[in-house]
Design a protein around this nucleic acid. Structure first.
Lengths: 161, 161
DNA sequence: TCTATCATGGACATCAAAGGTCTATAATGA
DNA sequence: TCATTATAGACCTTTGATGTCCATGATAGA
């Protein structure tokens, strides 16, 4: 299990956009050059980010991309879910097996969900908890927080000179 | 990004072994039957678990598998790392790009590691933190904890009758 | 010792997804 | 109108997950 390269590209691209915060757009050429990846492939990724409202895009001369909202409103989780999808990290594959029957439990009745008597595998329950831990952390880190950290590091280097 | 079915099978198999705790081994036939998966494929997975010391195997008549240590000494993380491997969840793919140079920092000197001047990408740093969160949680849950939960659930149902 | 049972390991097949390229199209500013 | 720029779809290649099959080796019991 690993995050895809696309996620890597997306995060780096967004940091780049966040850094060149002036109002002019950043073209795919500059972006791809900075990341060391083909324009072709990166543009697919940027399209996805646009469709999910993470960035805005302008076509035509002097067009390009910019963040659709401020960098501190774009969390790592936002980006990852756009690129990797929103399926659960873990799902019980054989819900009809004897093993599953043993581990399943009657889920607590959720009136607002109207899904009664749903069986929840206890293994899945643990994995779901783990997923929530991961998401919690990723929700707490934004593109801006990376920029802040980079800036702090940079000024610190200057001090030492 | 998702956990593989193999991980699903491995976890369920281990719970099964943990549940039939009597000293006799459990054959691949019983195991595969309980999980609803082919003996062929499951045996590969069990082999992996054996190679990593999670289970013991006995060949020949009346042979089969048993846990190599007590169920409360087998964490979810143990199992997942055997099956999914131990690579990082996220790695910066383009360490030579301009973008990366901007985000990299001189890693703190680790005398015991003897790796000086290693650049660590700030994005990777966040993702590494996320990974540690996930692992922390998975370390805290064992095969035994699932069995306990199942038992508790079961007796609770009995009470209601 | 023979045989049925059981795990092991390698070779192989299949399939879906990741990763990547190319081209036609549409939008836009000069 | 023309050069520029993003978009969307078709297409390709590689990789890894999933799965099967078979030869081999170990073991207990007859």
């Amino acid at each position: 299990m690993q995050f895809s390269k696309s996620t890597d590209y997306a995060l780096h691209a967004l940091v780049h956009l966040g850094n060149s915060e002036r109002c002019n757009n950043v073209g795919i050429k500059e972006l791809a050059g900075a990341l060391g990846v083909s324009e072709s492939y990166l543009s697919k990724i940027m399209s996805k980010l646009r469709q999910d409202g993470i960035v805005r895009a302008v076509t035509g001369v002097n067009g390009g991309y910019e963040l659709a909202r401020s960098a501190d409103q774009i969390t790592f989780l936002d980006v990852i879910q756009v690129i990797e999808g929103r399926q659960q990290l873990y799902e019980c594959s054989n819900t009809s097996s004897r093993q599953h029957q043993f581990l399943a439990e009657e889920a607590a009745v959720q009136p607002d969900q109207k899904r009664l008597n749903e069986n929840v595998c206890l293994i899945e329950k643990v994995m779901y908890g783990a997923e929530q831990q991961l998401y919690q952390y990723l929700r707490g880190h934004t593109i801006q927080s990376v920029l802040d950290e980079a800036f702090k590091r940079w000024t610190h280097k200057e001090d030492k000179k």
